[in-house]
Design a protein around this nucleic acid. Structure first.
Lengths: 208, 208
DNA sequence: AAGTAAAATGTATGAACGTACATTTAAAAT
DNA sequence: ATTTTAAATGTACGTTCATACATTTTACTT
C-alpha cells in the first residue's frame, strides 16, 4: 500500500492525492509485472483505493499507462536538466554531472528501471509510446552534442561528435540494463569510472 | 502462419516438426506482444495448429516460454562461439568477429531483440529465467576476458580488464537496444566503427 | 443542522485467458 | 484390408480481465 503523505484535507486535494496514488501504484506494478502484466486489480490493491476509482480518474487502462510513463519521464528530464545547470559552464564537469545523474539512485533504481525496460520492451506493439521515449532521448542527445562539440573546439580534437554521442548514450543505457539485471552487486562508482575511462581514451588531455 | 519447411513424413518427424513450429511461433509472438502478452490463442493461430496441441507438447505456458527462450539462447551462444573460432588466433580479429557477430542480421534482428528485451524486462517478476540470461552473459564475458588479457600482454598495456569487458559488453547491448527502438534507420557499420573507435582510445596501437 | 453535489465505492457483465479431456484422425502394425 | 494406438483436435470449464454503472459516502454550501 502506498501512503507516502497523510491524506490531505479539501475535496480537490483529496482527488489529486488519489490521482497521484494511482499513478505511483501503477508505476510500481509496471516495474514488477511489465506492461501486459499490469492489471487494474493489482494497481487497485497497491494504491488501496476502490476498483471503480481508477475508471473515474483514467478513462481507460491505456490512458493510465500513458500518464504513468509521462510522470516518470518528466522526472528524468528535470533531473538531467538540473544536473547540467548545476554543473556550471565547464563541459567536462557537465559530462561528469550527466554520468552521475544517470547513475544516481534517484534515477537508477529498481522501480524506474523496471518501468523503463518494460516500456522499451513493448515499444514494438505500442508504437504510440515511441514519441515519449524519443523525447527523453533528445533531451539527453542535445546536451551531449553541444558538450562534445565544445570539447572538440576547446581541446583541438576532431572527434566525430554524432557517433561518440550515440556511443556514449548507448553505454549509459547499457549500464542501466546491467543494473536492471543485477541490482544487488552493482557498483555505481565502477560504472562511472569506466565511462570516464572510455572517454579518456578519446579525449586524453581532458578526462585523465 | 509459420511453414518454413514442408510437412515431413513419419509420426516422429511430424511430432518434432509441430513441436518446432509451436516454439518458433511463440518466439514471434513474444517478440511482438511481450511475455505477458503472449497467449496460447496467439501462438496457436500463428503456428496453425490446434489449441490442444500446445498443451500436449508443453505441459504449461511457463514451460513453453522457457523452451522458447532456451531455443533462442542456444542459437546465440553457438553463433558467438563459431565466430570466435573462425577468427583464428589474433585477438584483435577475435574482437572484431565478436562485434560483427553481435551486429549481424542473424543475431541483431527485430524478432530476436523483441524476445531478448521482453525477457530482460520481465526478469524481476520471473527470476527463474535469470540463470539463462546469465549463461549467455558468461559465454561472452569469458571470451572477452581472455582476449583483453591477451591484448594487455601483447601490447604492453595495463588496462583494467574486468571493467573494460563490462564496459564493452554494455556498449554492445546498448547498440542492441538502439536497434530495438529504431530498426529502420539503423546503421550497423556505424555501430561497429564506434565500438572500434572507443577501443582504439584504449588500445591505440592495435585498433587504429 | 440540513441539504446538495461531487467523489468514491463495490457489484455486475461479457470477453479472453490457461488448461483439461473426450473425441477424431491418421500413421504404423498386423 | 483391418486393427491398433499414438497424435492431434476442438469443445468445455473455471478464473481473471477491463469496464460500466447504480449506490453510498463525504466534503462543502446554505
Amino acid at each position: 500500500m502506498i501512503r507516502k503523505h497523510p491524506k490531505p484535507k479539501g475535496r480537490e486535494a483529496i482527488k489529486a492525492w488519489n490521482h497521484n496514488k494511482i499513478i505511483e501504484a501503477s508505476i510500481e506494478v509496471i516495474a514488477k509485472y511489465g506492461i501486459a502484466g499490469t492489471t487494474i486489480s493489482r494497481v487497485v490493491e497497491l494504491a488501496d483505493v476502490s476498483r471503480g476509482l481508477v475508471n473515474i480518474h483514467f478513462k481507460s487502462k491505456d490512458i493510465l499507462l500513458k500518464e504513468a510513463l509521462n510522470y516518470m519521464f518528466a522526472e528524468y528530464n528535470n533531473t538531467i536538466d538540473n544536473a547540467v545547470k548545476k554543473a556550471g559552464s565547464n563541459p567536462v564537469d557537465q559530462i561528469k554531472a550527466i554520468i552521475t545523474a544517470n547513475l544516481d539512485p534517484s534515477i537508477l533504481n529498481k522501480k524506474n528501471m523496471g518501468v523503463w525496460f518494460a516500456f522499451r520492451a513493448q515499444i514494438r506493439s505500442m508504437p504510440e509510446h515511441l514519441e515519449m521515449v524519443e523525447t527523453r532521448d533528445k533531451c539527453l542527445t542535445n546536451h551531449l552534442l553541444r558538450i562534445f562539440e565544445t570539447l572538440n573546439l576547446e581541446g583541438g580534437y576532431k572527434i566525430p561528435v554524432k557517433s561518440v554521442v550515440r556511443g556514449f548514450m548507448v553505454m549509459l543505457e547499457g549500464y542501466w540494463l546491467d543494473f536492471h539485471l543485477h541490482p544487488r552487486n552493482y557498483d555505481r562508482e565502477e560504472a562511472k569510472n569506466t565511462c570516464l575511462f572510455f572517454l579518456a581514451g578519446l579525449f586524453p588531455k581532458l578526462f585523465k
